[in-house]
Amino acid sequence: MLHHAKNLIFRLLGLMALSAALSACGGAPETATVTGETMGTTYTVKYLANPGSPLPDPKQTQADFDKILQEVNRQMSTYQTDSEISRFNRMKASEGSMAVSADFATVVAEAVRLNRLTEGALDVTVGPLVNLWGFGPDKNISQAPTAAQIGAAEKLVGIDKIRLEAKPSETGARLGKQADGVYLDLSAIAKGFGVDKLAQHLDSLGVQNYLVEIGGELRAKGKNQKNEAWSVGIEQPQFAQKQAAQIVVPLNNRSLATSGDYRNFRTDASGKRLSHIIDPQSKQPISHNLTSVSVVADNAMTADGLATGLFVMGEEKALATAEKNRLAVFLIIKTADGFKTEMSSAFKEIVK
């Protein structure tokens, strides 16, 4: 399964059921809530019947969701040895390139685009450094890597180390690498893509109102059972003085994702706290005061990737990038006195 090392601070407003359920109270539309497991976490989808139409069968819909998510894993899970991404990671550079599915190519292309937007902060080739610092499959590393080890891994890291070839439709897309050992990990963006795939399936069924969530990454369309915009509460820190416990974000046909490192870290031999997120530029675990980044975007894949990239950048660069690109971003920053929050201009427009 895909593993996504993000710690989430969402409270879903209106997603109260934890298993498949139907409700039709008074004049409210008939509603279904289905749940399942995927990518090392859970998913929850709530959708409403269209006026005058029957509700798509929840059991069949859940079966469809599971099939869709299994296919995403078959393409992009580094934990499945026969997945497309695992076959690519084993491939030698001398083999040239390998054919990849359209969905796989879509996610890689977006990762490349967001790498440029975040000035290299989101880098899906950073796996060799992640493994070197003890956040990969081998969790027993107790000492920091040497400069020589970092230098060797660095030669395999960089978006320029992969090559996505868009070919005519009859041959499909192909993906190549510049050196043996180049390792692709799409976990910073694939969960959001999974959200989008479930939303697309609901669209294909003609569903006009839904909220899709996988491990805290969300995408909404239409209205909830109260005929209001689907809303998500972002919990603020206890020490964000004189502020409400939550910032309520109406999604209005948009997506939301967050990235942070509250709990996913390890301590080295000297007792130093090491974040699980590696800065591709410094080649070390990030060490800044930014605690979390939440992003609202048109689709969950983009929100997912941006949340990680902006988190790596740190408070000042993240806010500057958000303003430059009109990104809706909410930051929680650790201070000497506790925590503070910041919002980009685009985010303020959403919650005003």
Results as ranks from 00 to 15, higher is better:
Met39Pro: 05
Arg87Leu: 13
Leu290Val: 14
Thr146His: 04
Glu95Tyr: 12
Thr35Trp: 03
Arg263Ile: 11
Arg263Tyr: 01
Leu22Pro: 03
Thr78Gln: 09
Ala179Asp: 15
Arg174Pro: 02
Asp57Met: 09
Glu165Asn: 04
Arg326Trp: 00
Lys197Gln: 15
Lys191Glu: 08
Val207Ile: 08
Val232Met: 13
Lys242Cys: 11
Asn131Val: 15
Gly151Leu: 11
Ser204Ile: 14
Ser77Thr: 00
Asp185Gln: 14
Asp268Tyr: 07
Thr146Phe: 07
Pro58Lys: 03
Asn50Thr: 04
Leu327His: 11
Asp82Gln: 13
Glu95His: 07
Cys25Asp: 15
Gly136Arg: 12
Ala199Pro: 02
Arg219Ser: 09
Gly96Phe: 10
Val72Cys: 13
Asp261Met: 06
Asp203Ser: 04
Leu2Lys: 07
Phe330Val: 01
Asn7Leu: 04
Val45Glu: 02
Leu22Gly: 04
Leu331Ala: 06
Gly151Asp: 12
Ile332Cys: 00
Gln178Ser: 15
Ile234Asn: 12
Glu95Gln: 15
His3Ile: 15
Gly338Phe: 03
Glu37Leu: 03
Asp279Arg: 04
Arg266Ile: 03
Lys59Ser: 13
Leu306Tyr: 00
Gly158Glu: 10
Thr267Ala: 09
Ile247Glu: 00
Asn115Phe: 14
Asp57Ile: 04
Ser231Lys: 08
Arg254Gln: 12
Lys334Cys: 09
Ala153Arg: 03
Gly172Glu: 00
Ala303Gly: 03
Lys46Met: 13
Leu48Pro: 05
Pro54Lys: 14
Gly27His: 12
Glu84His: 00
Ser231Trp: 07
Val130Glu: 04
Thr171Asn: 01
Ala300Met: 08
Leu48Gly: 01
Val248His: 05
Asp160His: 10
Pro280Gln: 14
Ile189Met: 09
Val126Ile: 15
Leu48Arg: 13
